[in-house]
């Protein structure tokens, strides 16, 4: 039951805008049917009759568009152009699908575009940046060479962000700053683009929302990417040095005893030196077999010290940067859905 109710609500929500964009006028529908049957005369008659009736903006644009297609199909280009000019004035963003439109109608439409002054395809990019360090990209297309003034307006605030004579696509980079240099205040704004040629003018707008947020701070480092601490001690390889030195010391002592002994006193006693020397050689042998004690690795110690200094220095810089960032504001600019067209 609940599922059916949800489905009904969903259908109602979907069908509402669809009904607003469908042709209700019977005369216009008859004209469309005649055009679809390639009965151009009937389409012209019914289309013109429909324009004399009460139509919605959408229906009126469809009626002129139908006339434009019909005149183009009948090789009446000038009249076709006139009809398309009305379409463009009613719906400046209107574009024809080149895959579904005849080349005659397309060229008539392009000619019409160059003969009316409209601002098309006004677009503001969604962007987030730190105030003062980024820009908001605004772009639009003006169909005729004209003086184009771009403003950002919210209540009493009106900021002129660009004024230029241009034709075709225009790109503006707006830093979103007040004349004082501060970031613009948070709120809903309208980007208004006004084009003027003599008495002719056209304006269009796009609502945007500007919000403020905190600037992300940088995390402190505990290591540098790609660099790891090295062991500050290393075990030297086993060697026979202890055994060799013990043997040398013992040999020197015993040889010295033999050499220094007084010949008148008979052969010298090697018992005492032999016992101590044997103990020494045994200790040297054991030390040779034993795993050597870890020794400080001076190169690694210096490397680690350098790494610690680098990380400390970088963290100091990060702390300073974070202090600065906490005083900044992050601007988020998001375009909102457009309420209406141009005038």
């Amino acid at each position: 039951m609940r599922t059916r109710l949800s489905l009904a609500i969903l259908l109602a929500l979907v069908s509402a805008p669809c009904m607003a964009q469908t042709i209700q006028n019977a005369t216009l529908r008859r004209a469309q049917q005649a055009f679809d049957n390639l009965d151009y005369r009937q389409a012209l008659t019914a289309g013109q009759a429909a324009l004399r009736e009460r139509l919605t903006g959408y229906e009126r644009a469809r009626a002129y568009e139908l006339l434009g297609f019909t005149y183009s199909g009948m090789d009446s280009i000038l009249r076709g152009v006139d009809a398309f000019k009305q379409v463009i004035l009613l719906e400046p963003e209107r574009d024809l699908d080149p895959t579904k439109t005849s080349s005659k109608a397309l060229s008539a439409f392009q000619v019409a575009l160059t003969q009316v002054l409209v601002i098309r395809q006004l677009h503001v990019d969604s962007v987030t940046f730190v105030g003062g360090q980024g820009v908001v990209a605004v772009r639009y297309t003006v169909t005729q060479p004209a003086r184009v003034v771009t403003r950002v307006v919210s209540g009493q605030t009106s900021l002129k962000i660009d004024s230029t004579v241009a034709s075709g696509q225009v790109n503006i980079r707006w830093p979103a700053r007040l004349p004082s240099g501060d970031p613009v205040l948070a709120g809903d704004y309208n980007v208004i683009v006004e084009a003027t040629i003599g008495q002719n003018n056209f304006a269009t707008s796009l609502p945007i929302r500007i919000s403020h947020g905190a600037v992300d701070t940088l995390p402190h480092l505990t290591s540098l990417p790609g660099y790891t601490y090295l062991a500050e001690t290393e075990v030297p390889p086993k060697s026979w040095r202890p055994m060799g030195l013990a043997a040398v010391y013992t040999g020197v002592a015993l040889a010295g005893t033999a050499a220094l002994s007084n010949g008148n006193l008979g052969s010298s006693s090697m018992r005492e030196g032999g016992v101590i020397g044997a103990g020494l050689v045994l200790a040297g042998f054991v030390m040779t077999l034993k795993k050597p004690a870890p020794q400080p690795a001076r190169g690694n110690i210096l490397y680690n010290q350098l790494l610690r200094e680098q990380i400390s220095r970088r963290n100091t810089e990060i702390a300073q940067e974070n202090t600065r960032r906490r005083q900044q504001v992050a601007l988020s600019v998001v375009p909102l859905s457009r309420a209406g067209g141009g005038r």
Partner: peptide, 14 residues
């Protein structure tokens, strides 16, 4: 004096 290994010292004197 010479350190043969951890905790093991030897010495020659004259």
């Amino acid at each position: 004096g010479y350190l043969l290994g951890p905790g093991v010292h030897m010495a020659l004197r004259g």
